[in-house]
Design a protein around this nucleic acid. Structure first.
Length: 307
DNA sequence: GGCCAGGTGTACC
DNA sequence: GGTACACATGGC
């Protein structure tokens, strides 16, 4: 007979839960006492690094099988094996040493895709706010402790599609609202089968994702890495490009295209993990010393031809 | 108030 | 292959 329980202990090695859930790969983790809470596949969960080598998870409803959570956390991954595949270069090793236990999660593809569609030119806090509004509006109410800050599941593509553009704009999505709506419709009507992408080679899966309006290389790579576990995918945003230039090409400024080519050959089969270390290290430890990410500045517009 | 934010689409050259 | 700009919204 299966045992049911609302708490579960997961043995881990080199797992920094706080760094992992705040590293910009997932948007629905909130501090909860000395731990973190979120909703994963329609289940409210709270996790705490209760003692060394143990993550203790709590749910509001009894579970017989906790594999869904272990899969999400990727708690079985031996980080040392991943790091062993990295090239022996000083900047990367420094980032690795600065963020011990930083992990990649394995998220639901739809939630991940939707989240990153909303991420473009938004700060992480604003992405979080926008997603919470969407969840409150269209996500199913969860069974959760009363004062929990996560009370709704992430809405299905169907639910988002039924919401319509006006309601999505009310969730402060701005110009991203039609992008998300279109993606939701494509997933809901089956013309984009997110499950089928699992079987495709990375490049082909990427092409399918980029076929969506509002999804370019960067967002597609986020979904490939954070939801499909394609660890060779390397999401290259303005920060990472800045970091790469700073660390690897201080004397010249290769174009983003050339930098991507460098990434493909340099970092190896777990380039995505390397990206996560470089990104998190730069964001948390280097901060402003790196300067703002360089972005072409729009020229001042010509004054309107009128008095 | 102006600038900027884990980008992308479109219009140009 | 490259560059420039618009696209909403909120925080500083």
């Amino acid at each position: 007979m299966e045992r049911t329980d609302t708490t579960h202990r997961i043995q881990v090695e080199d797992y920094d839960l706080a760094a992992t859930v705040t590293s910009g790969q997932a948007f629905r983790w909130r501090p909860s006492g000395t731990g973190w809470e979120s909703a994963i596949q329609g289940t409210w969960v709270r996790i705490e690094a209760s003692e060394p080598g143990i993550l203790t998870a709590t749910t509001a409803t009894p579970q017989t099988d906790w594999r869904w959570l272990e899969h999400y956390l990727q708690s079985h991954v031996r980080l040392a094996d991943v790091i062993a595949t990295f090239p022996p270069d000083p900047p990367l090793l420094e980032a690795v040493q600065a963020c011990p236990g930083l992990r990649l999660l394995r998220q639901d593809p739809w939630e991940c895709l939707a989240g990153f569609i909303l991420s473009s030119t938004k700060q992480i806090v604003q992405i979080q706010q926008c997603i919470e509004l969407l969840c409150e509006r269209a996500g199913q109410r969860l069974e959760a402790p009363p004062r929990s800050s996560i009370l709704h599941a992430f809405p299905s593509a169907d639910s988002v599609a039924q919401l319509g553009e006006t309601a999505l704009r009310e969730c402060k999505m701005g110009f991203r609202a039609p992008y998300l709506l279109n993606a939701a419709r494509r997933v809901a009507d089956g013309s984009l089968d997110l499950e089928a992408l699992r079987a495709l080679p990375t490049a082909e899966a990427r092409d399918r994702l980029v076929g969506l309006h509002g999804v370019g290389r960067k967002i597609a790579d986020c979904v490939l890495l954070f939801a499909y576990g394609r660890q060779d995918a390397f999401p290259a945003d303005v920060w990472i490009l800045k970091v790469l230039r700073h660390l690897y090409f201080p004397k010249r400024a290769p174009s983003p295209r050339r930098l991507l080519r460098f990434v493909e050959t340099h970092f190896g089969p777990n380039a995505g993990y390397a990206q996560q270390f470089l990104f998190h290290h730069a964001r948390v430890h280097l901060g402003s010393s790196l300067g703002k990410p360089t972005k072409p500045k729009p020229k001042p517009r010509a004054p309107a031809a009128s008095l």
